[in-house]
Write a protein that binds this DNA or RNA. Structure first.
Lengths: 173, 173
DNA sequence: TCATCTGATTGCATTTTGCAATCGGTTGCA
DNA sequence: TGCAACCGATTGCAAAATGCAATCAGATGA
């Protein structure tokens, strides 16, 4: 996990940033899950990252300029991690990645509904989402004043699928 | 490099397919470089992959359904690797990845011109490119009969930058 | 007071990687 | 016919990365 710089190829350099098994997972949880704290990332992700790997990746992502860290005013020990613009602009890549995975890989229905929605929303939805992330993480004003946030919309769709699956599994209570 | 299936999340599953340092590099060289043989991939890529890693990744990508392998009729020992539709549909992801890397990472000018062109071309150019790849690798007919192939276009742009840089480096012969 | 939670760190076994040398078979050329 | 060059790999080995569990000191809440 060093900074080789094997070549100046854009694809290669991108891979050197997040071409490992965990960096993008962490960013995914921050972007789509709204996770900001070490413990949230440690326990919250389904994949179960180890704490030493998480610490290493957070440090690395900060060195690379993808994250910043700040003290949480509400708790002297708590650190808040924020996405930088560099990380926020990964949203279209994550959207494509999710769309591709949904088509070609054995994704679970609950988890792929969000990828489907994000794909259907297209660039306008991605832009709106990035604006919301900038507001959350960089403190920029939200110019588009619209009701439900993209994250909440995606989460609601997920909950709906989970609920409907639970219902069909046990039709009567 | 096993097939964990840590979770059914589309992004996670995608990462389990090409979330390592070499798989996407190999696919990049096949897609953009037109490489089809083991030796071409071994010696052709700037990053210098080791032969055992290359062999391992080719095997793995075949198991995952991203590549197929066939005998080269012209040479009893030669194997030809082909992209499957699953791999060809990575083109938009590679385009986005290149575009992102070009903005945020210290890419070399020669190598980033292709990413820039591919980004500017947008989905229509990607579709044309994918059609050409299907023709090369899957034998499907080329419905759009247009002059220069996308790969040749990108390559020409690359050569032009290389030539202009060489000129400005040594103005007179 | 004291259990719990905070962001980590340490030690250790396992796995993956990178590198160089090598393999048996094929080909093209003299 | 000889032989160097090339074909797609394979092997051995050292170094690095990973996964896992235990642990840390300080802060917090009851």
């Amino acid at each position: 996990m060093s900074l080789d710089r094997r070549s100046g190829c854009p694809i290669n350099l991108s891979l050197e940033v997040f071409g490992d098994r965990w960096s993008l997972i962490i960013l995914r949880d921050m972007i789509f899950g709204g996770k900001r704290h070490f413990r949230e990332l440690l326990n919250g992700s389904m994949e179960g990252i180890a704490s030493n790997i998480l610490a290493d990746r957070l440090k690395r992502l900060m060195q690379l300029g993808m994250l910043t860290k700040a003290d949480d005013p509400s708790h002297k020990q708590k650190a808040i991690y924020s996405l930088t613009e560099m990380a926020i602009t990964l949203v279209p890549i994550l959207a494509h990645l999710g769309a591709w995975g949904r088509v070609w890989l054995p994704t679970s229905e609950e988890l792929s509904i969000r990828a489907e929605l994000l794909e259907k929303g297209g660039p306008p939805m991605w832009e709106k989402f990035m604006d919301e992330l900038r507001h959350e993480h960089l403190g920029t004003p939200l110019d588009t004043a619209s009701g439900l946030s993209v994250r909440a919309t995606l989460q609601a769709a997920y909950q709906a699928v989970v609920a409907s699956k639970a219902l069909s599994a046990s039709p009567a209570a």
